[in-house]
Design a protein around this nucleic acid. Structure first.
Lengths: 210, 210
DNA sequence: GACGGTCGTTCCGTATACGGAACGATTGTC
DNA sequence: GACAATCGTTCCGTATACGGAACGACCGTC
């Protein structure tokens, strides 16, 4: 039994009283709302739920309905799963090029470096050329299935299942699924923080070109 | 009354809908239940909810309460976020050894091989010895921060930020955070399917020791 | 082929989550 | 300082999600 997200929500035998507000859905919703500069009244109005409902939800004094949660999280623009604590950082953002489909799994923000972890899928036979990234950016690929030709456009490498490839991606580089199988791979992109880059950790629209 | 119960989560004006996860909570719960070989009556009894409630939930004819969802998903042993479509495979299961804390990010099930992707954290100075895995299992680590000594117990390697290490983990192997920084790393474990292993794709309790 | 066991669904009275209205508190305006 | 506007909370009647019981269907066993 994989014990889930936060502290031991005690799923033993019959039912441990379940305490309505045990996991912090309410505070999370509230934080999401406040991050957007919305008042409770405003969000309630936009989401089409009563203020009483939203107030009770945020304070954990109610036991909200799935429908209510849907209405509120939809208006906040987050997947419901995230509001329930799936993963605070990223969940399922998708990038897509002509050939490469990538799902952003994780972003790690450290002091001087950012890592982005993607799952990639490249249809058999497809090929994509991506422009250079910033200086110092490196990509690290683990192939799950299929055979991948990847790397700098003038010197790509081949990788089969279980193999790793890393390269400096500050030059144009290619991705290609050779053979007749789709390529599944994990891509880790490492962005060293350039001197003077002060972008706040939250404005994350500059999604990389893969 | 907010309708939009099923499909068309139409959060019109402000946001681009953000791909919610399709919302078929009922069928998902049903699938999770059936994968575990539980009858509706049995699960209802164990979770401490009425059969009517569970039936209605699975069939989508009710609008379940968060408390109800908690009770059911807790008994199924999955994070609620997963039942709501966060990620069909895995989200947030945690493994923990004497020194290594690992969060399972992803599981890829292919025909002849399974990959598990973890995020690891090892406190500065900590060290852990892990027993051998099955024959053919390999581990692939990408270090995010800190310096990691890792690999077969008799010949570990060193890796700093951005570096990869791979090794055959069918022998006892060590993890150690050298230096004064916590180690953050990504761990990919590759389990080739052994001949004759027919474990169904979902009975996942044999969580690896890291 | 009657019987006890279990399956998933439906019916029903009760508990409760719902939206709307009223509330006191706070803020900005004249 | 009176006033209007808005904040988040609380009160209240109604809609509805809840658990329990009854239901028909489908097994095995004798």
């Amino acid at each position: 039994m994989l014990h889930h997200s936060l502290m031991d929500c005690g799923s033993q035998t019959p039912r441990p009283a379940l305490e309505t507000g045990s996991h912090d859905v309410g505070p999370r919703i509230r934080r999401l709302r406040e991050e957007r500069g919305l008042s409770l009244s405003e969000l309630a109005r936009r989401a089409g739920v009563g203020k009483a409902t939203l107030s009770g939800l945020e304070n954990g004094t109610r036991n909200p309905t799935l429908e209510t949660l849907w209405a509120v999280t939809a208006e906040l623009g987050v997947p419901l799963a995230v509001a329930l604590g799936a993963d605070p950082v990223v969940s399922g953002a998708t990038i897509r090029g002509t050939a490469v489909a990538g799902v952003l799994l994780k972003v790690f923000e450290d002091e001087n470096v950012t890592y982005e972890l993607y799952r990639l899928m490249i249809p058999a036979g497809a090929r994509q050329l991506s422009p250079a990234h910033h200086e110092g950016v490196t990509e690290h690929i683990t192939v799950f299935g299929g055979t991948l030709r990847v790397g700098p456009a003038d010197s790509p490498l081949l990788a089969g299942p279980g193999e790793h490839i890393s390269w400096l991606s500050d030059v144009p580089h290619v991705y290609a699924a050779v053979g007749d199988q789709d390529v599944h791979a994990s891509l880790l992109i490492r962005y060293p923080r350039r001197r003077g880059d002060e972008r706040s950790p939250e404005d994350s629209d500059a999604s990389p070109q893969a």
